[in-house]
């Protein structure tokens, strides 16, 4: 067994009781995050990404499985896990500064007023809020500004893990770009561990070290863990010229367009085959992929590296044959 990751998600499942019986949104979701890693998760709507994030945040409880952070089981919310929500979730009766101070005071209850203010202003300046904007109420700020405040609040509490739930989903492309740049810069400086939900493939490649791909729900799971082996520091204008960029992008789009569905069907067959719990868990475990390295290897005329071969000889292939041959 390998050394445990900083964040361990094991066989997470979420089931809802509905009028038509039980609905399993996701099942057997397992993955790990290392300290300082930036991981994005992509999947179609309804695969339960947000629920996974809420479970990591401690806001929601899973129907099965466990989450461990730094060896301790995650039960309930904690200041060690900062959350940035898609709808900003700023308290509208407080100014931008006061919203950040709210987080800082909760995190450092012993601090003096001036200490809290100084710390909060530092983080607001870091995300580019200055010249009086920090004293405005959220309603008087643009969507981009509000999300900056929300990001500042999360970073200011210095959590061990930062959870971002589609933070740029509601922003226009231009604003999204500048805030992505700032997030990239801050993460590079602080080596923050980040888990982020996104729908944007390009955003994921720009920001992430690894991208988790989820199959379609119901019974969604993390099917692949795609390594983004593109050198840092990255830049939005030059990243597209990296030889690894398009192989990764094609791999992701291909997954979203066809493989997410195909894998869902294959998973159904695996589940119906009635294997032992261990065999099933092994069959449904995520596969490591590195499309950029594969492309480089192909260009150099070498055999693909070890990580890639696993994709084409997944342990699940055997149970699948068994099902078909029945």
């Amino acid at each position: 067994m390998t050394e445990p990751h900083f964040l361990e998600v094991k066989h997470l499942a979420k089931r809802f009781g509905t009028d038509h019986g039980e609905l399993t949104v996701f099942d057997d979701v397992s993955f790990g995050l290392d300290k300082g890693e930036f991981v994005c998760i992509i999947g179609h709507s309804g695969c339960g990404k947000s629920t996974i994030l809420n479970v990591l945040a401690g806001l929601d409880s899973p129907s099965g499985g466990e989450v461990y952070m730094a060896g301790k089981e995650v039960r309930g919310p904690s200041l060690e896990r900062g959350v940035v929500f898609q709808n900003y979730s700023l308290l509208p009766w407080r100014s931008a500064l006061s919203n950040v101070e709210f987080g800082v005071r909760a995190r450092f209850p012993g601090w003096s007023k001036s200490q809290v203010r100084e710390h909060s202003l530092q983080y607001l300046h870091m995300v580019g809020l200055k010249d009086g904007a920090e004293h405005r109420k959220p309603a008087a700020l643009s969507g981009g500004m509000r999300q900056r405040v929300s990001i500042a609040r999360a970073f200011a509490t210095q959590p061990q893990l930062l959870l971002l739930d589609e933070p740029f989903g509601a922003l226009d492309a231009l604003t999204r770009g500048t805030i992505q740049d700032e997030l990239l810069k801050i993460c590079t400086e602080t080596h923050q561990t980040v888990f982020m939900i996104t729908h944007d493939v390009d955003e994921a490649i720009l920001l992430a070290d690894r991208i988790l791909l989820m199959t379609n729900g119901p019974f969604a799971r993390v099917a692949e863990s795609v390594k983004v082996s593109i050198e840092r520091p990255r830049d939005r204008t030059t990243i597209v010229h990296d030889p690894g960029y398009y192989p990764i992008r094609t791999h992701l789009v291909d997954f979203l367009v066809s493989r997410s569905r195909e894998l869902s069907e294959r998973d159904d067959a695996v589940r119906d085959a009635g294997h032992s719990r261990e065999a099933r868990a092994q069959a449904l475990a995520p596969v490591d992929v590195d499309p950029a390295a594969e492309a480089r290897a192909r260009a150099a005329g070498e055999a693909p590296p070890e990580a890639l071969r696993t994709l084409h000889s997944t342990p699940a292939a055997a149970p699948l044959k068994a099902v078909n041959g029945r």
């Binding site: 904690s78 308290l91 009766w93």
Partner: peptide, 24 residues
């Protein structure tokens, strides 16, 4: 969302009532 903000900041029920729910 606002209650979740209070929860993720580990506010006590009393603080949540006075700092989040009452102003809201």
């Amino acid at each position: 969302d606002w209650v979740n903000v209070a929860r993720t900041h580990e506010l006590t029920p009393m603080s949540t009532a006075f700092q989040v729910i009452l102003p809201a």
